[in-house]
């Protein structure tokens, strides 16, 4: 009688795939399988290669040009001169507009997400319309936000404010920090809503039930149990919104950015200089691109450091939230 030892009918743990393949499938080497797997792998590598090239190119060229003087100086009108220029007003301007934006977008985004996850019935028409609107808002081109900011905030709200306040000259009815920030807030609203919603959904329903069964109202449950738990997700949303907004130029072109300002912005109705816009100016309007190159690279590096630091933090927090979500099934 033929007896099989376990090693004959059970593939070894270490080489189960190769053994199985060799044993059950035609003995030829599967060229197409190898070829296409390789191709998709190459596509992945290629994308990573592009990413690495861009980053390395900028870091290598930009690092040598960055100095304390560079990041702490307010430049003269001719900011193409590599020796005297600086980017302090741009750093301040970009930070300022992003902070003001956050103040507006976080509350609205978080409250919308709370409505969608905690109050709304998933099947109701109004919920569907809100979700469709959020999705659409996320897809509107950034330049259209710029036009909207100009048409709505400046030409409509700003001009009417000036008329109401009887300002002799345009104070609010012109490009200003507040309008740029509000435009960006509208643009990043979906980012905050989606991130907050994701983290609200990751909270076990049992916690809400426990609180409600103790006789807490819905609002009390949300404020005391749900929101503290959702805080990391809300933070991720905020950070993603900030990092997205920090690099955007198109929406602020007509709503508040200035080509040059001799002083730092001090008031919400001031215009401001901006890192991203400055990169655009340096790379397209320099009288001598070879001389401008080092400061251009340095400016790009400053902007990248700002957005990447924020992005990495957001990705780390989000990975943790997602893991929790998956653990819940």
């Amino acid at each position: 009688m033929n007896t099989l030892t376990p090693s004959e009918y059970l593939p070894e743990k270490t080489s189960d795939t190769t053994r199985l393949t060799r044993h059950f499938r035609a003995e030829k080497f599967d060229f197409w399988s190898f070829f296409f797997s390789g191709l998709t792998g190459l596509a992945t590598l290629f994308i990573l290669g592009i990413l690495a090239t861009i980053l390395l190119n900028i870091i290598v060229n930009g690092w040598s040009a960055i100095s304390w003087h560079f990041v702490s100086t307010i430049p003269k009108k001719d900011f193409f001169d590599a020796n005297t220029t600086g980017v302090l007003p741009m750093i301040v301007g970009t930070s300022f507009r992003v902070i003001v934006m956050t103040i507006f977008v976080i509350p609205v985004g978080v409250i919308t997400a709370i409505y969608l996850t905690e109050y709304a019935a998933n099947t109701s028409i109004i919920t569907r319309i809100i979700r469709a609107a959020v999705n659409n808002l996320a897809g509107v081109p950034s330049i259209v936000f710029g036009l909207f900011g100009l048409g709505f905030f400046i030409n409509f709200i700003g001009k009417n404010m000036d008329a109401l306040l009887h300002n002799p000259t345009a104070v609010w009815g012109q490009p200003a920090l507040i309008w740029a920030s509000l435009t960006l807030a509208v643009m990043t609203l979906p980012v905050v809503i989606v991130a907050t919603e994701e983290s609200l959904k990751a909270i076990p329903p049992g916690l809400r039930e426990a609180s409600l069964a103790l006789g807490a109202t819905k609002l009390e449950t949300i404020l005391k149990i749900v929101l503290p738990q959702a805080l990391p997700g809300i933070m991720t949303g905020g950070i993603l919104a900030v990092s997205r907004a920090a690099g955007e130029v198109a929406p602020i072109l007509f709503t508040g950015v200035a080509y040059y300002m001799a002083s730092l912005p001090a008031h919400l109705s001031d215009q401001f200089m901006d890192l991203g816009y400055h990169i655009f100016v340096l790379s397209t309007q320099s009288p001598n691109i070879e001389q401008t190159r080092p400061i251009l690279y340095a400016t790009v590096l400053v902007l990248l450091m700002l957005t990447f630091a924020l992005n990495i933090v957001a990705i780390l927090i989000r990975a943790r939230v997602r893991k929790k979500l998956r653990a819940l099934g």
């Binding site: 076990p204 916690l207 039930e209 426990a210 103790l214 006789g215 005391k224 738990q229």
Partner: peptide, 28 residues
């Protein structure tokens, strides 16, 4: 809300709040 205060509930899966033991009881 008033009803649930008078009719308490304990669930299948224990669901303490992610707070301290003291705060869990103090919450209600």
């Amino acid at each position: 809300i008033e009803l649930r205060k008078r009719v308490g509930m304990v669930f299948q899966k224990s669901n303490p709040f992610p707070k301290s033991i003291y705060e869990n009881v103090a919450y209600g």
